[in-house]
Design a protein around this nucleic acid. Structure first.
Length: 558
RNA sequence: AGGGGAGUCGCCAAGUGGUAAGGCAUCGGAUUUUGAUUCCGACAUUCGCAGGUUCGAUCCCUGCCUCCCCUGCCA
């Protein structure tokens, strides 16, 4: 892992800000709305914000953007906190909430009214849409906005009305508070954006205290400023909102109401090939029963990846390798898999498991003659310990590892051929036994007793296969996963729905035979030698289940 | 149509007036009791297109093309 990680434009900006003395300490923030579970896309934002902060010895806040009680829940908030911790990050101080600033937000709104920069508007959503105009037509001013209008409201009236809004004197949706900016702006966000709406909903933090809630654009910039955020990184779709972010803060800073004016920087979100990250669509998969839930190992959620055996370090490495830019991207799955493997290669204990068994009888097995070897759990890390790989008369090997008529280059077991049993002896296939249907049911092999821990003299046996004792191994359900979709961009197929591209073979369930030592590793991802990485399913109840994390690289099988 | 962004190898991504980093993928080869790991090596005469400026342009200028985002009282 000596690769030089790419620089990115955000790092460059921060470097510059520190060099010029604009900032001596940087503060970032991760601002999720608690309205869903974290997925790989969030992982990028998390790694970026927390990563930057620690890289520059700064801090990163966790702030829930809880301005829309209708969609938010405590369960999501909890899950998000756990996800961040699981990824290996910790936030500065207590968890923060946009709702912590509701009083200030309200107070600043009154300030804007007093300054004649905000007004209460009675336009219905439909009317508001009409007044807003469209991309080629400038909007019309609200009839409540200007002194020349019959319905014009003085700032005293606006203030009184706004207070009544807060006091619950008006029904939901009947009035809004809008900023007075520019209805003819080519930027829609500046056409008198709504900053408060009336909405009676139980809020996860403030309960029923408020019946008016501030909008994102108004809330986010102020929250950033109040927390002293220096760099506010968000995704590209907020680029158009930056003028509004700056408009609000410029006025508030001038009035001395906020301590600083953070800089919003936009970067492109992460897209992964063959997957979707839209909350709505992911939810659809759950609802349709296509997956087991939000934590299904095939889901690109943190919960899913965790259950699948992806490690935080692997995910972090992946995100780092993806880089940060403003260009549209659709990252190759193999980059994620390579990153996860790279971490697992170093940390995962190895055991043996046979997934598609074929029975092998060792004809010359003898309790006096035949012994077993101590095998380390990791070839390069003896400190991880070892176990005895006990050979017995009957073993299972992988059906794949035997070919009656071997293809060119095949270096595993074949009639009359020799192969090494991993951590054990070299055996030779003496006889192939078939059932009435012609299918191979058993292989009779002989052990070369002079090959335990040493190579035979006078010949080279290249193949090494894994095996498991019939008696000593344990049975386990093994779940193999493949990508959920058959298209690189299931989301973006012209005239088609993403559900048209579901991969019918994304889950395969097998009955495997696992070396018994596999039971001792409940929490960590293991390597089943020559097969891949697997992890005991955290949700398994009365049986042993292993989830396949990712296969080992295989330069033989295509 | 107006506004805001983006286009550098199959996928990401640095670079930025001096002649194209790196990772993944791919393909060779060495070592190997995991066809894994590790190790070596190959892999953009070219930076969306067309002009222009310059001794010299992926970087500057002009025009064009393509893709993404924006008309929630969502975030």
């Amino acid at each position: 892992m000596t690769e030089v990680l790419p620089n990115n434009f955000i790092r460059t900006i921060i470097d510059e800000d520190i060099k010029t003395g604009k900032h001596t300490k940087i503060i970032t923030r991760f601002p999720p709305e608690p309205n869903g579970y974290l997925h790989i896309g969030h992982a990028k934002a998390i790694c970026l914000n927390f990563g930057l902060a620690s890289e520059f010895n700064g801090e990163c806040n966790l702030r829930f953007d809880d301005t829309n009680p209708e969609k938010e829940s405590e369960e999501y908030a909890k899950s998000i906190e756990e996800g961040i911790k699981w990824l290996g990050f910790s936030w500065a101080g207590d968890t923060k909430h946009a709702s912590d600033y509701f009083d200030k937000l309200y107070q600043f709104a009154e300030y804007f009214i007093e300054q004649d920069m905000a007004y209460v508007c009675d336009l219905t959503p439909e009317q508001m849409r009409q007044y807003r105009g469209d991309f080629s037509t400038p909007g019309k001013n609200s009839p409540y906005r200007d002194p020349s209008d019959k319905l014009f409201r003085t700032k005293e009236e606006n203030l009184a009305l706004f207070r009544q809004m807060k006091n619950g004197d008006f029904p939901d949706g009947s009035k809004t508070l809008r900023l007075k900016i520019d209805m003819s702006s080519p930027n829609m966000n500046l056409r008198d954006p709504v900053i408060y709406r009336i909405k009676r909903d139980h809020h996860i933090r403030t309960g029923n205290k408020w019946c008016i809630y501030p909008m994102y654009d108004y809330t986010h910039c102020i929250s950033d400023a109040l927390e002293g955020i220096t760099h506010s990184c968000c995704s590209l779709e907020f680029e158009d909102h930056r003028p509004l972010y700056d408009w609000v803060l410029d006025h508030l800073l001038k009035a001395g109401l906020v301590p600083c004016h953070p800089r919003q920087i936009e970067f492109s979100r992460l897209e992964l090939q063959y997957t979707i990250t839209s909350k709505r669509k992911l939810n659809q998969l759950v609802e349709m029963g296509v997956v087991d839930g939000w934590d299904d190992p095939r889901m690109p959620t943190l919960l899913g990846m965790r259950r699948r055996g992806y490690t935080p370090a692997g995910i972090r490495l992946f995100i780092e390798r993806c880089g940060v830019s403003k260009s549209p991207n659709n990252v190759d799955m193999t980059l994620l898999e390579a990153s996860v493997r790279e971490d697992l290669e170093v940390v995962a204990p190895r055991i043996m498991a046979v997934l598609n068994p074929i029975k092998v009888v060792l004809t010359n097995f003898s309790a006096e003659l035949t012994s077993s070897r101590e095998a380390p759990f990791h070839p390069q890390r003896p400190e991880l310990g070892s176990r005895l790989c006990t050979l017995t008369k009957e073993i299972y090997i992988e059906a794949d590892d035997f070919q009656e008529v071997p293809e060119a280059g095949f270096q595993r077991l074949q009639p009359g051929g020799e192969v090494r049993l991993r951590h054990s002896y070299i055996i030779k296939c003496e006889e192939v036994i078939k059932g009435p249907d012609g299918k191979i049911t058993q292989l009779n092999c002989s052990i070369d007793h002079n090959t335990l821990g040493k190579n035979p003299e006078g010949r080279k046996v290249k193949g090494v296969i894994h095996w498991v004792s019939c008696d000593l191994s344990i049975n386990a359900e093994v779940r193999l996963y493949d990508r959920l979709f058959t298209e690189v961009t299931p989301d973006k197929m012209e005239g088609k729905d993403f559900t048209d591209f579901l991969n019918p073979n994304s889950l395969q369930i097998l009955n495997g035979h696992i070396e018994s030592a596999g039971q001792d590793f409940k929490q960590c991802t293991l390597q089943f030698e020559r097969l891949g990485y697997f992890i005991a399913d955290i949700k398994a109840q009365d049986k042993i289940i292993f989830n396949k994390t990712v296969a080992l690289k295989d330069t033989w099988r295509k």
